[in-house]
């Protein structure tokens, strides 16, 4: 729980949800071998929604959001991202991946490339943007995450918080319509958590569709319009943040909240 994150008040006025559906998951099931990780998942995300996914370790949160950009393959049910259905058709997968950005717990920057090259790589090679233009876009987003001065350094020379902000900028350079975050702050020291959360809040304020797996409940309260609680591969409860935190319905949720809020 980060107290720091609550110092910056998120401006909810611009966070508007449209009717357009960004992600639609219906009756989705997934197994690892015989282990049933995701059980009958149904989830519709509209454009502009900020969804926080919480739940105990091993409940399948990462697996769920990784199914959305096909880092994991689901075996049953449908996932439709921005109108394109995820099948084993490589064309669809590539299309979806170039429209869905993802940030990982361990940043996964490319250590052999400079910060700028990390950001221009995908635009140049996937979108075929001319190098010059890709660099301008990259600098724009590096400025947005407040580290333009690090552009020529290598990831290994940056702090964890800076690396995660570069990772966010790297995703943004592809101009994604949806951003996935898998515990973006759990590998960071407390003082760096704030800088990353601030960046994410800013992103939310600009109307980005976001699905975040996170334990930062302060962030969830401020930014999310919906909190989803998962346990044992199932969606157990979902609600608006105020309701979710103040008035949890299921016993599992209550137990989880009492543990994570530390009282």
């Amino acid at each position: 729980m980060s107290e720091l994150a609550q110092k910056r008040e998120a401006d909810r006025s611009k966070m508007s949800v449209s009717d357009h559906i960004a992600v639609q998951i219906t009756n989705m099931n997934k197994w690892y071998g015989a282990f049933h990780v995701l059980r009958d998942i149904n989830l519709t995300v509209n454009e502009g929604e900020r969804i926080v996914i919480a739940g105990p370790s091993g409940s399948g949160k990462s697996t769920l959001i990784r199914c959305i950009n096909r880092l994991e393959e689901h075996q049953q049910g449908d996932i439709i991202v921005d109108g394109t259905e995820l099948t084993s058709d490589l064309k669809n997968i590539d299309k979806i991946r170039s429209e869905v950005g993802m940030c990982f717990q361990h940043f996964n920057l490319f250590p052999h490339l400079s910060i700028l090259e990390n950001c221009t790589l995908a635009p140049i090679w996937v979108r075929k943007t001319p190098k010059k233009e890709a660099e301008e876009i990259a600098m724009h987003f590096l400025e947005k995450v407040k580290i333009p001065e690090q552009a020529d350094k290598f990831p290994g020379q940056l702090s964890g918080g800076q690396q995660q902000r570069v990772a966010i900028a790297r995703s943004l350079c592809m101009k994604p319509r949806i951003m996935l975050f898998d515990e973006p702050t759990s590998a960071l020291d407390p003082e760096m958590i704030k800088e990353v959360l601030d960046t994410m809040i800013e992103l939310a304020e600009e109307g980005m569709t976001m699905l975040c797996v996170t334990h930062e409940m302060g962030f969830a309260r401020q930014v999310a319009n919906r909190v989803i609680f998962m346990d044992q591969g199932q969606i157990v409860e979902q609600n608006e943040p105020e309701e979710f935190f103040n008035n949890p319905k299921s016993d599992r949720t209550k137990l989880f909240l009492s543990q994570i809020l530390g009282h």
């Binding site: 880092l71 991946r97 170039s98 869905v100 993802m102 790589l121 790297r170 995703s171």
Partner: peptide, 11 residues
């Protein structure tokens, strides 16, 4: 993570 990041960017 390197493979995943490359995949996630659409390479």
């Amino acid at each position: 993570g390197q493979y995943e990041a490359a995949d996630a960017l659409g390479l």
